[in-house]
Design a protein around this nucleic acid. Structure first.
Lengths: 155, 155
DNA sequence: TATCTTACATAGCTCAGCTATGTATCGGTC
DNA sequence: GACCGATACATAGCTGAGCTATGTAAGATA
C-alpha cells in the first residue's frame, strides 16, 4: 500500500485526529480555568509576544481572524491597557500594536493558570513523552506561523 | 524542587504553547474548509466512532460540553440521520446514541476535507517529523480521553 | 407510595466572529 | 496639484455555539 513515507490517507487521518483531540484539549482548558477572555485574545497576545509589534491587519492574519474581529480584540486589549497603539510614522492609516507591560504579565498568568489546570492530565507522562509533545508543538509552530509565502490562501 | 524530569514551569509553557498553536490550527481548518458544522458536532461523531454507542450524558462529558448543549447537538444529528437514538432497555429515561451509516460517511468526508485543507502546511515535513506528531497525538488522546477516574473534576 | 436522585429537554442569554459597508489615507497619473 | 483606484482600519448588524437555570419524567430507596 505504501513504501515508507506518509501517504495522503494517513496524513488526513492524523490531521483530523489532531484537530479533534486538540479541540477537546482547548475545551478542557476553557472550562477548567473558567476563562472569560476569548481564545483569540490570548492568541493575539501570544503572537505579539513572539513576533513583536505589528500592524492590526498583520495581527489579524497571524491570529487567523478577520480584520473587524481584530479591531474589536485590539479595542478591548487597549481598554485593559494590555497593549499600546503606536501611530505608524510612515502611514497615517496604520497603527503598530505593541504588547504593554500589563499584557506581558497577563499572558504569563494565563500560561500559569492553563498549566495548573492541564498538568494533572499529563502527570503520567515520562520525560521522553513530554519531549515528544514538545517537539510536535515546535513542528506545529513552524507549519502554522504565517510566512510571507502562505499568508494569503484564506484571506 | 525537581530532579530532572519536566519541571512545572516548563510544563506550563509547553501546555499553553500547545493550546495556542492548536487553536490556530483549528482556526485555519475552520476557515479553509468553510465549515458550517460546529467543532463540537465533529468531536461528538469522533467520540461515537472511537468508543461506540453511549448515552447522551456520557457523550456530553466525552465531548466536553454541557448536557443541554449535547441535547441540541444530538437533535441536529438526528435530523440529519447521522446518528440513531436507541431506547435504553434498562432505563426508560436514557437513550443510547449510535453512529448511523450517514454519520460514518459524513465523518469520513470531513476528515478528508480537513486533510486536504491542512496537508499543504505540512508538505515540508519528513517521515520522522510526521511520526513525532503522530505519537504526540496518541499521547494527547490518552491524556484527554475521559476515564472513569477523572470524569468529574469540571462536571 | 412518598421522596430523593438521575437523565434528558426547554427557555433564554451572552458573546465571539462573521459579512457588508463606511471613512480616511496612500500612491500613481494626468 | 487634483483625481482615482487601492489599502488600512472602524462601524453596524447578524448568526450561532455554548452556557445557566429550570422543567419533566423515570429509576431507586425507604
Amino acid at each position: 500500500m505504501n513504501n515508507e513515507s506518509a501517504p495522503t490517507q494517513e496524513l488526513s487521518d492524523l490531521l483530523s485526529d489532531l484537530v479533534s483531540v486538540t479541540h477537546r484539549l482547548t475545551r478542557i482548558a476553557a472550562r477548567a480555568t473558567g476563562e472569560t477572555t476569548s481564545p483569540a485574545t490570548w492568541r493575539t497576545l501570544s503572537v505579539l509576544s513572539t513576533f513583536g509589534p505589528m500592524r492590526l491587519g498583520e495581527l489579524a492574519k497571524q491570529s487567523r481572524v478577520t480584520q473587524p474581529t481584530m479591531t474589536k480584540i485590539v479595542a478591548n486589549l487597549n481598554e485593559l491597557e494590555w497593549i499600546r497603539r503606536i501611530a505608524d510614522v510612515d502611514d497615517a492609516r496604520a497603527w503598530q500594536i505593541a504588547l504593554a507591560p500589563k499584557g506581558v504579565k497577563a499572558l504569563g498568568e494565563w500560561r500559569a493558570r492553563l498549566g495548573q489546570a492541564l498538568a494533572p492530565l499529563f502527570d503520567d507522562l515520562d520525560h521522553d513523552q513530554i519531549e515528544t509533545i514538545s517537539r510536535a508543538v515546535d513542528l506545529l509552530h513552524e507549519c502554522t506561523d504565517v510566512r510571507a509565502s502562505d499568508v494569503v490562501r484564506a484571506a
